[in-house]
Design a protein around this nucleic acid. Structure first.
Lengths: 149, 149
DNA sequence: GTTCGTGCAAAGACTTTGCATTACT
DNA sequence: AGTAATGCAAAGTCTTTGCACGAAC
């Protein structure tokens, strides 16, 4: 339990917002939850959708992702490969991403590590931080030579 | 002096790398230095270029930016508006960006505020950070209601 | 004189949009 | 029934690429 995003939570939010619950939207949400770790692009998600229902169009995937993003149920990421990637929103702040420059694996850091940074920015620049996005590029545990595979 | 990127530093690096110094490249570098604070997109930079030499093509701007990025003289940013933006590289690490959600102003934070964060990630996830990119969304000094304009 | 860079236009990738049809409430 | 969502295809952006010409070393 807790604030982990799950299918029911998303469905409930959509119901509260009076958006129509279509088979396509249900499927898209289900697959977003199922493949949370994949950070799929719209196109990748569309492939997953088509494996279940080949009639769903790519535009519907885009429109549903836009809808979910407006409802703060999904956030889009830019992981540097020229296309938007999507993940379920996990709370007030985004979580951080560790991008391994060796193997390309994407890990997540859920804790908010930036409290001190945000305070520093406020006092030095008078800038009040509301949200943040942090990408850390480096070498993951498995690729690290000292801990080798 | 110091590590601030300037025209001569960039020219020297290009000379060292045996890339040809063309009028177009000189102009592009000059304008990148002149408009450092603008974080121009390729297209915006192209407009600036054309104000001086209307014959320069957009493809040349893209190719020059790619070249400079490969030489670590420029880094591309994703500030969330769907196009790549560019700035001169300023050292080992990228600096951070403060994006005001009210007025859209982009400020920069040069200090490296993430030392503690990177240590935490290393010890908790065994991930060795090499570079990072941090965007802080919030309200800048000028837009802050308490300090009003 | 070679080699590399440039300009142009075409192609490519990702995303958005218009419109007739379909499905939800 | 009325409204909103869908699918398709076309259009829109941003970026890359092929090729002949021109410039740098």
């Amino acid at each position: 339990m807790g604030k982990e995003p799950d299918v029911n939570h998303v469905y409930q939010r959509m119901k509260d917002e009076d958006v129509k619950m279509t088979a396509q939207r249900q499927l898209i949400v289900k697959l977003l939850v199922k493949h949370q770790d994949r950070h799929p692009s719209a196109d990748e998600l569309h492939q997953l959708v088509r494996d279940v229902d080949p009639d769903v169009g790519l535009a519907t995937v885009y429109r549903t992702l836009d809808l979910l993003e407006r409802l703060d149920l999904v956030q889009s990421l830019n992981l540097g490969d020229g296309r938007a990637r999507y993940e379920l929103a996990s709370g007030v702040h985004r979580h951080h991403h560790l991008l391994c420059i060796e193997c390309g694996k994407i890990e997540e850091v859920d804790e908010d590590l930036l409290g001190a940074v945000e305070e520093a920015v406020l006092s030095r620049a008078g800038f009040t931080v509301v949200d943040h996005e942090l990408k850390l590029y480096g070498v993951c545990c498995a690729c690290s030579p000292e801990r080798g595979p």
